[in-house]
């Protein structure tokens, strides 16, 4: 028994020693990232947006209504006659950015909209990147027929512009926002499959993979233990950059009119659709303000992603 525990002890020790460089590496990465002030500002803005989204889930009543999944609770009158109030400080905090269609206050609905926009975007990018990463890494590592077939399939997805492909797939699935999400997942994985395939190909030719194979590691084990962790950083950068484009695409599809049956859903693209009602009357705030709110997020995500790329790309750092 004593022998066993001492044996276990050495294993444990070896493990902690093995881990330390990774932890230091992470600390170093973090330090480099924080140093890049612009990227850090982007990161903080993204965090604020995420915090609002979480608040929408855990304490929706901060917005002053009982149900934030529809703008119905804010509607004052279902007529488009009359002019919505402009940005003003005199009607209290929620009316600071003015009103939009049906005299709904813009500010709280904009905050509620993040629940839809950010949740769906994260779901899309997360599932798309996981599936794509797995297929791409396996394809890059094992190659041969499987690789050829997968790459030809991604070719097809690349031969149609994403927005148009999303339109076609959503039309087939039926008009609803859930189907928009499914359609975007269906078209989004090939990006990751291609990206990770390239990285896996370059990792495959490394000496340590050869060493692992020589010491009896199977192909699947190699993929999960040696290749995937190295692919992750590239995927993570792409993930953060894609969050911005997906939010845009999602809003665009909603704007085109795929949100059948939910005309009052708080969603930034939908809010822009409401705003177009008053476009020719020269009422600018229902269009400009939700758009800026969306733009701040996409710019912040891009700044953060660029910063992450600089830090995580081993060729660029040090």
């Amino acid at each position: 028994m004593a022998n066993d525990s001492s044996f276990g002890g050495t294993v444990l020790k070896a493990k902690t020693e093995k881990r330390r460089p990774r932890l230091e590496d992470f600390k170093h990465t973090l330090k480099l990232f924080v140093k890049n002030k612009i990227a850090f500002v982007g990161f903080v803005i993204v965090l604020i947006y995420f915090a609002i989204t979480i608040l929408d889930y855990v304490y929706p009543r901060y917005l002053g209504v009982s149900n934030i999944d529809t703008a119905a609770s804010w509607v004052k009158s279902l007529s488009t006659a009359g002019v919505p109030a402009g940005p003003t400080l005199s009607h209290g905090w929620w009316y600071i950015f003015g009103e939009t269609l049906y005299f709904v206050p813009i500010f709280p609905v904009m905050l509620a909209a993040l629940k839809t926009d950010i949740t769906y975007s994260i779901i899309i990018v997360f599932i798309g990147s996981s599936v794509g990463m797995l297929l791409g890494t396996l394809s890059g590592y094992f190659g041969k027929l499987y690789d050829e077939v997968l790459m030809r399939i991604t070719d097809i997805f690349y031969s149609v512009p994403f927005l148009i492909l999303a339109i076609a797939v959503t039309t087939v699935l039926g008009y609803s926002l859930t189907n928009v999400v499914i359609a975007l997942i269906i078209i989004w994985w090939p990006i990751y499959a291609r990206l990770t395939r390239g990285v896996a190909l370059s990792i495959k030719s490394n000496k340590y993979i050869e060493a692992a194979t020589a010491s009896g590691s199977s192909g699947i084990r190699n993929v999960f233990v040696h290749v995937l962790p190295n692919v992750l950083s590239v995927v993570f950068v792409q993930f953060s950059l894609d969050l911005g484009s997906i939010v845009q695409l999602f809003a665009a599809l909603d704007f085109i009119g795929f949100n059948k049956g939910a005309p009052l859903l708080p969603e930034l693209g939908n809010m822009l659709t409401w705003g177009t009602t008053y476009l020719t009357a020269g009422i600018w705030w229902p269009i400009v303000i939700p758009g800026i709110f969306l733009l701040i997020f996409t710019v912040a995500v891009n700044l953060m992603g660029d910063g992450l790329r600089d830090v995580l790309d081993p060729k660029l750092r040090r």
Binding site: G244, G275, L279, W284, I287, G291, L295, T298
Partner: peptide, 16 residues
Amino acid sequence: TGYAMPAFWLALLLQL
């Protein structure tokens, strides 16, 4: 900003 700007929003802005 060109990268991050949603095309349809820019179109609406230019209309305004």
